[in-house]
Design a protein around this nucleic acid. Structure first.
Lengths: 408, 408
DNA sequence: GGAGTTTGTTTCGCTATCCAACATATTACG
DNA sequence: CGTAATATGTTGGATAGCGAAACAAACTCC
C-alpha cells in the first residue's frame, strides 16, 4: 500500500562508480556528521561490516580520515573505533559584502580553521573583491601548502549567480553585473573556484551543520544589509533551478501597490521588510545583528513594536506562500529576520497556522539560524568540497603534488 | 572550473540493487520514451552492449518488452531491433471530480487503453467515489485478468493528499476530509492503491509524455472547476515536500485585501482567478475547456477582454513568484489557464520579463498542456507504475498468479 | 571469571559488469 | 555485383566489489 521509497533511476550504476559511490558516501557521512563509529557507519550505509572496513581502510590510506580510540561510552560488545575527518583536507571560502570581503579556511568536518575579514572603504567591485581574496590567500599560501590539501575555493555572492559557470549575473547591492568571478579568482589563485548565491549556500550550511540538521525539506531565509536571500532544500537537495538562480524568496510578492523594487516589480518582500528602519528605531547607525537585537530589546517602544509587527506581517505572507508551495519541515531564519522572529516568537507560527493550508502548515517549525557568522564560510566551503565529496579518491589523485606534511 | 555533474550519494549502491537498478532504468526508458532501439538504449544508459543485451533479454523473458524488426530508416551498419513496451503491463487510474469519476486503464508506454467517465448527479463522497471506481473495475475484471497484468491503481484527487499513506487530508471542492481513499479502494479491489494530488500527477504526466518532455525544471498549473492546482518538477523530480503536500500554487498570495479563500487566507490566486466568470461571459452555463475556449473566441467583447486581462494580471504575479523561486525552464498551463494564455499569448511572457528577476526570467517558456483529457489518467497511472518501474522483476514476481493470456 | 554481546578481520564465493573477439546485417562505392 | 566500411548483436573469459560465514577481539553483565 505504501509507495516504495526507491526512486526511478536516471543513471546506470556501473561497477566502478559503485566503489566510488560508497567511498563518497562514507566521506560525506563523516564530513557532515563529524564523529561516527565504524559500527554506526555500517548501520547508516547498510553496507556489510567487511565492506565498510575495506572502504575506511582506503580512506585512512588516502589520509582523508583517521581512526581514534573508541569513545568512553559504556556499551555491551566490542567497542567500535571512531572515525574522524582530517581537517587538513580543506576548502577556502570567500564572501564579498558591501563593506568587507571575508576569506576563510574550512576543514573537512565543517570546522572553520581560519577567518579573515578585510574591511573595505566602499563597496568592492568584482575585480577588487577578487584581488583582496587572492592577496589574502597568497598570504596563507605557505601554510596551505605545508599543512593542508586545499580542494578549491567557494565564493558566496549576494545576488544571482549561475552555479554552472560561476558568473554573477546580477548582484544589485554590490552593483555587479555579469562578472565571471569564479574564473577570475581561479586565474588569480590557481585553485578551482566555484560561486553561488550566498543564501543558497547558507541553506546548505544550516542543513548540514546547523539548525536544519537531519531535515529533508527546509526553507532558509537570510536578512542582511543586502536585502533578503533565500535557499530551499527539497528532499535533501538544494533547489537550484535551471541555472542555479532558484530560491529568490526575497522577491516574493507580499503587497499590492507596494514600493517598486530594484528587480523591476513592486511589492516584493525585500522592499517591505528590511533592516534599516529597525536600525533607526533602535537608535544605532549600524552594526551587526547582535548589536541590533540588543538595542531593540533595550529601546523597546510602541514604535518598535509596530514596525516589528508590520514587518512580521509581510514576512508571514511570504512564508505562507513558501509553506504552501514546499511543505517544508522547518523554516530557518538568519540575520535580522531571526531577530524579528525572536522579538515576537509566536507571531509567525500563529499566522502560518491561520493562513497557510492545513496540511503543509501543520508541522512546520521555525528556527533561528545556528551557525552565526561562520555560516557563509561553511556554506561556501561546502561548494568547494562538492567535487571531492562526490569522488574522494579521484579528487585526491587529481590534486597537484604538494609538500604536505600532514598535521596530525 | 565547472562543478561536476555527479551528486553526493545518499544511498549505498550494493551489488544486488545494481542489477535491479539497471533493469529499472531500461524499463523506465522504454516506458517513457516509447520506442527505442537497442543501440539507442546502450547510448542512453552508458552500459555495455553485452550488458544491455542481457538485460533486455531478461525483460523479454519477463514479457515486459518485446523486440521488433528494425525501423526502415536507412543507416550504415547492422540494424538494431526496436524495443517496445508491452501495454499488457498496465495500471488503473481513478480521478474523482465534482461531477464525475473517471476510471482508466493505461498500458506501459503511457497509452490510454480505456477510459470510462461515470457522471454523478452530485459531488461524490469519498465512499461513493470508491464504490464507483470499484464497480467499474469489477466490470473490467475478467478482461484485466485475461489480457493484462495490472500493477496497481493510482488515484488523482483535487486536494491535499498525503502520498505516503494515501489519505486525502482535505479536498475542499469535493468536501472530503481525512479520507483514506487508497486504503478504501485497495480493500474494495484487491489492487495496491496509491493516491496523490491531481496537479502533481499532471505535472509528472506532462513531464514524461507531454509538453514538458525532456525538461528538468518545470511548473505545471491546472485550472479547473476545482480551482487551481500546481505541480513542480525540480531537477527532474516532482517536488513532494514533507508529506507530499507541496505544489499548492493555487494559494499563492496575489492581492492585498483580496477575497477570503476557503483555505483561511485572503488574496489567493485561486480566488482571484477562476473559470466561473469566464463561463458567464462566454454565455454558456458549463462544459469543458474546449467549449469554453470556442465560446470566448466567438463572444469576444470588451468585457471578456477586461476579465481576461484582469485574470492574467494575477496569474502573472503568481508566475513571477514561482519563476523567482524555482528558476524553471518551462511553465505548462492546463485547463482554463491554458485558455487564458492562448487568448492573449504575449501577456504572460512580457509580464514575466518585466516583473521577474533577470536571470530566472530570461529563458522561461510558457506552454499549453499537450495531453488534454488523458493527462489525469496518465499521471495517475504513473503513480501506480512507480513501484514496478523501480524494480520490474521484483514487482512481477510479487504479482499474484493470473490467467494472463498475453495479447501480442 | 564465565556467559553473552557486539564488532573487527579474514577468506571465499557470487554477481554483474566490461572487454575482446567474432558473427551478422546493412550501406557505400567502385 | 562484390568488396570494404560500419554498426550492432553474441559469446566467452576476466575482473571488481560486495556479502556471508567463520573466527578473533574487546567489552558488559552477573
Amino acid at each position: 500500500m505504501m509507495p516504495s521509497p526507491t526512486r526511478n533511476p536516471v543513471t546506470a550504476s556501473e561497477p566502478d562508480p559503485s566503489r566510488r559511490n560508497n567511498l563518497a558516501l562514507l566521506t560525506s557521512l563523516v564530513h557532515h556528521n563529524g564523529v561516527l563509529s565504524r559500527a554506526q557507519l555500517t548501520k547508516r550505509t547498510g553496507l556489510n561490516r567487511s565492506t565498510v572496513g575495506a572502504l575506511i581502510g582506503q580512506l585512512v590510506n588516502l589520509e582523508v580520515v583517521y581512526e581514534a580510540a573508541p569513545s568512553g561510552e559504556a556499551q555491551v560488545g566490542r567497542p567500535s573505533p571512531i572515525v574522524h575527518p582530517r581537517p587538513s583536507i580543506a576548502a577556502l571560502a570567500v564572501n564579498p559584502e558591501i563593506d568587507a570581503v571575508t576569506i576563510g579556511l574550512v576543514g573537512l568536518g565543517g570546522k572553520v580553521q581560519k577567518k579573515i575579514r578585510f574591511d573595505t572603504e566602499r563597496i568592492p567591485t568584482a575585480k577588487e573583491a577578487v584581488n583582496i581574496a587572492a592577496a589574502v590567500i597568497e598570504g596563507m599560501r605557505s601554510e596551505l601548502d605545508t599543512s593542508y590539501r586545499v580542494m578549491g575555493v567557494g565564493i558566496a555572492v549576494p545576488g544571482l549567480v549561475n552555479r554552472d559557470d560561476g558568473v554573477v549575473r546580477h548582484a544589485p547591492h554590490l552593483g555587479w553585473r555579469d562578472e565571471p568571478v569564479a574564473r577570475m579568482l581561479g586565474e588569480a589563485t590557481g585553485y578551482p573556484c566555484h560561486a553561488a548565491n550566498d543564501a543558497s549556500l547558507g541553506a546548505e550550511g544550516e542543513l548540514l551543520f546547523g539548525a536544519g540538521a537531519g531535515q529533508k525539506n527546509l526553507i532558509f531565509l537570510n536578512g542582511g544589509a543586502s536585502g533578503i536571500g533565500g535557499g530551499i532544500i527539497a528532499d535533501g537537495e538544494l533547489l537550484r533551478g535551471t541555472s542555479g538562480y532558484a530560491g529568490e524568496l526575497g522577491h516574493t510578492f507580499v503587497r499590492s501597490s507596494g514600493k517598486p523594487c530594484h528587480c523591476g516589480a513592486t511589492g516584493c518582500l525585500e522592499t517591505e521588510v528590511s533592516q534599516s528602519p529597525l536600525f533607526e528605531l533602535a537608535g544605532i547607525g549600524g552594526g551587526d545583528a547582535g548589536e541590533l537585537e540588543q538595542a531593540l530589546r533595550q529601546n523597546s517602544s510602541e514604535a518598535v513594536d509596530t514596525e516589528v509587527a508590520r514587518q512580521l506581517e509581510y514576512l508571514g505572507i511570504a512564508l505562507r506562500n513558501a509553506v504552501n508551495t514546499f511543505n517544508p519541515e522547518a523554516i530557518v531564519l538568519d540575520g535580522f529576520l531571526g531577530i524579528l522572529h525572536a522579538l515576537s516568537p509566536g507571531t509567525l507560527v500563529s499566522s502560518l497556522q491561520s493562513q497557510a493550508m492545513d496540511g503543509p502548515a501543520g508541522q512546520v517549525k521555525i528556527y533561528r539560524a545556528a551557525l552565526g557568522s561562520d555560516l557563509m564560510m561553511i556554506g561556501a566551503a561546502e561548494l568547494a568540497f562538492t567535487q571531492f565529496l562526490a569522488d574522494p579518491a579521484g579528487a585526491l589523485a587529481a590534486l597537484p603534488l604538494s609538500k604536505v606534511d600532514y598535521v596530525h
